[in-house]
Design a protein around this nucleic acid. Structure first.
Length: 485
DNA sequence: TGACGTTTATG
DNA sequence: ATAAACGTC
């Protein structure tokens, strides 16, 4: 067969390398490519081989598939397509750039250690080939190196970090989808590495197909993100501060998986929330806006911690926790994973997670506290389960939040702060609406005992026995903490 | 972005 | 007698 030009056309194209920025709006790399006037090739490389890249969990893989599909659809609607490859990115990208005779490769930055190593290797290889490599900020309001203490060290306390972030200036305005995209629409051939179909990546579960609950609860991709944002701003922003902690109210934004894969950007949320607040007339608008923004702030802080603590998902930030006498208890872990601990608020959360790939934020704190403190099981076990089951499993947020709950984090909850799952349930799910949604065992149980079904008179016979009793577990956790010195 | 036992204030 | 307030984990 005669050799054919992999990417025909006389003019040298620009490659946009998409990663955790699966959107067309507010995408600085894409906008820069559009502005440079060259033809644009949009590329995704599925890299499961490079050292230091953590393989995605099952739920996240499902989301990634849907988000990539949506990017491809959006590009096709504009006369282009998404070119998908598989392999070691630091080899594939330079080869692809050479084969396509690209003038430049643009991407939005990542902040994990392994990801930065890969991106650095790509940049070095491209420059050796005389190809321009340029990176942008599409993932954060404030990149880690732009926020520092007066003495030049990274922040370790959220409130101080967030105050300094405000002083660093307002997040910049989001970019529109480029009005003119000169997209490449050819067959995406490459001489060295064959292009693959999205389905070839096998990101979706096949048999058994466990993704039904995910499919019926989520619509991955940019259009789904914008729809969810509009719904949240319309229905829930104006009661956000008061109701976000009540899992029965569905008052949170539910935007986390979209942020994780960059189906929407924090800059878009920052400014869209402000616009919605300005248009509202009810009292407390400012308080709700600031509360929502501070949740974006926690995400920023997590990325700050990840950048300065590359091993955050495997190493205690406070090394004294290395001496914690974690228990080995496979039965307890299994009961926790399955939502059969005997505590309704814990069990409801874990079943919501298993069914939908997501869990309400308040309940995440309760189930995490239960695993780490009541069961004395290493937070890394919980982090790993969340990594595999959450559609929003995020390299920064997941690890930083688990360490926060465990008490091993930088600015962590004190270890002696042990959530009482009964009181948390009664306080934040007073009518039992949330636990009943996920626990059919509790049908018809009165709200007065729905969070303590073992109590005499609750008439709950089928509910799992408590795997550990609260007072005992609390004391055991406090003793273990005291032993850390 | 807790819980809990104890003390103190108020009637 | 009950509820704030307080100290400790």
């Amino acid at each position: 067969m005669a050799a054919e030009t992999p990417f025909p056309g006389s003019e040298r194209p620009v490659i946009v390398w998409l990663r955790d920025d699966l959107r067309l709006s507010d995408n600085p790399a894409l906008t820069a490519a559009a502005n440079c006037g060259r033809r644009i090739i949009c590329v995704f490389v599925h890299d499961e081989e490079s050292e230091g890249l953590r393989p995605l969990g099952g739920a996240a893989r499902w989301w990634l598939h849907g988000a990539l599909q949506e990017v491809d659809n959006a590009l096709r609607a504009r006369g282009g397509r998404l070119c998908v490859y598989r392999g070691v990115a630091s080899a594939v990208m330079p080869q692809l750039a050479a084969d396509s005779k690209a003038a430049a490769v643009y991407w939005n930055r990542r902040y994990g250690a392994g990801e930065r190593r890969v991106d650095e290797a790509v940049k070095t290889a491209l420059k050796t080939q005389g190809i321009e490599a340029k990176s942008f900020n599409g993932h954060l309001l404030y990149e880690p190196w732009s926020i520092k203490t007066k003495s030049g060290t990274p922040f370790r306390v959220f409130s101080a970090f967030w105050r300094a972030a405000h002083e660093a200036g307002e997040a910049s305005q989001p970019l529109d989808v480029p009005s003119r995209l000169n997209l490449f629409h050819g067959p995406c051939r490459q001489a060295s590495t064959p292009r693959v179909e999205l389905a070839d990546l096998a990101l979706e579960p096949s048999s058994p197909d466990w993704a039904g609950g995910l499919r019926s609860n989520w619509r991955p991709g940019e259009a789904g993100a914008l729809a969810q944002l509009e719904f949240f701003l319309e229905e829930h922003l104006n009661e956000y501060a008061d109701l976000r902690d009540f899992p029965g109210r569905l008052a949170t934004s539910r935007l986390s998986p979209y942020l994780r894969f960059g189906n929407i950007s924090p800059r878009q949320l920052w400014h869209a929330a402000e616009a919605a607040a300005n248009a509202a007339t009810n009292p407390g608008v400012h308080r709700n806006l600031e509360k929502f923004r501070s949740e974006l702030g926690w995400r920023e802080f997590s990325y700050h911690l990840l950048y300065y603590n590359p091993e955050i998902s495997s190493q205690n930030l406070q090394t004294r926790f290395d001496g914690m006498p974690w228990r080995t208890d496979a039965d307890a872990i299994r009961a926790w994973q399955l939502g059969k601990t005997g505590y309704p608020i814990v069990d409801a959360g874990m079943r919501e997670l298993w069914t939908t790939g997501w869990m309400h934020n308040r309940v995440r704190m309760v189930v995490a506290s239960f695993l780490v403190k009541h069961l004395l099981i290493d937070w890394r076990q919980g982090e790993a389960w969340f990594w595999d089951t959450l559609v929003d499993a995020d390299p920064a947020n997941n690890a930083a939040s688990w360490q926060w709950v465990a008490g091993s984090g930088a600015d962590a909850a004190p270890y002696f702060r042990v959530f009482n799952p009964v009181l948390q349930g009664e306080k934040f799910d007073p009518d039992g609406r949330y636990v009943k949604r996920w626990l059919p065992e509790l049908d018809g149980v009165s709200s007065s005992v729905v969070h303590r079904p073992w109590q005499r008179g609750s008439k709950v016979e089928v509910y799992p026995e408590r795997i550990v009793e609260h007072d005992f577990a609390r004391q055991r956790a406090l003793d273990a903490f005291k032993g850390l010195g």
